[in-house]
């Protein structure tokens, strides 16, 4: 009896904690401290159109403000890695001293294209464990601030959800956690994507590129076309 009561209390506390760390529904403005120091940035390149749009967003940034930059790609997505490297080259900020301003981080795929639904759960667990390792555990062994990245930029597909779960493990335990910025694809005019629907309550900023998508109750902001 007392054990079940204890488990119940722990579960209740966990639920309260999760509710506490969720971004509030009506604040869209972040409350970051004013900063002149560079912030670290991680961006997930989800291949194909996701990669194209994510890199267009990153290309808009002042690279001297976002150091280091981590490009997260799925295992085997060499095209996205090439495109990231080529963006870094064209931005032309890679002087000899700043060679380690960016890294490419490979994570296992949560689900391969055409993978059967039966074998998806194990591979998704492997992907989640890898994300938790990189986002929660690895930062402890790094010099400087123990945070994976100050800001995590994602735009789908669904697998970027596992990255955000990793960030939420940090939030849950009160560890330094990335700000999650979700930008829905330019191709989404009338309906949110699956990753959009999953991440809308979790992201610190949820940005859409067509005003029609603001009809969904709750969170979301529109600033015109961003890509």
């Amino acid at each position: 009896m007392s054990l079940s009561l204890f488990v119940l209390l722990v579960l209740l506390a966990a639920l309260v904690r999760i509710y506490w760390i969720l971004p509030s529904a009506n604040t869209t403005r972040g409350k970051r401290k004013r900063s002149t120091e560079p912030r670290s940035l991680a961006v997930f390149l989800g291949s194909g159109g996701h990669t194209t749009e994510a890199l267009a967003l990153v290309s808009a940034l002042d690279f001297s403000r976002y150091i280091p930059r981590t490009y997260i790609i799925s295992q085997g997505d060499n095209l996205s890695a090439q495109k990231a490297a080529s963006l870094e080259l064209t931005k032309g900020v890679l002087s000899t001293k700043s060679k380690d301003e960016y890294t490419i981080l490979k994570i296992p795929r949560a689900r391969r294209v055409h993978q059967s639904l039966l074998t998806t759960p194990p591979t998704a667990v492997v992907a989640l464990v890898a994300c938790i390792y990189h986002i929660v555990i690895a930062p402890f062994f790094r010099k400087g601030r123990p945070v994976f990245a100050d800001v995590l930029l994602v735009n789908g597909p669904g697998t970027c959800f596992t990255l955000c779960l990793g960030v939420y493990v940090n939030k849950f335990f009160g560890l330094p956690a990335s700000q999650i910025i979700y930008v829905e694809s330019f191709a989404r005019v009338k309906s949110l994507s699956l990753s959009g629907r999953l991440l809308r309550p979790l992201a610190d900023r949820f940005v859409v590129q067509w005003p029609q998508l603001l009809q969904y109750k709750g969170r979301g902001e529109y600033h015109g076309w961003l890509v």
């Binding site: 403005r29 401290k33 267009a56 808009a60 930029l153 930008v183």
Partner: peptide, 19 residues
């Protein structure tokens, strides 16, 4: 078609991150 305007996203993220 309007040309690529990166300033909107740059402004959004810079403000959010305190720049």
């Amino acid at each position: 078609f309007p040309p690529f305007d990166g300033s909107r996203f740059a402004k959004l993220l810079d403000e959010h991150m305190g720049f």
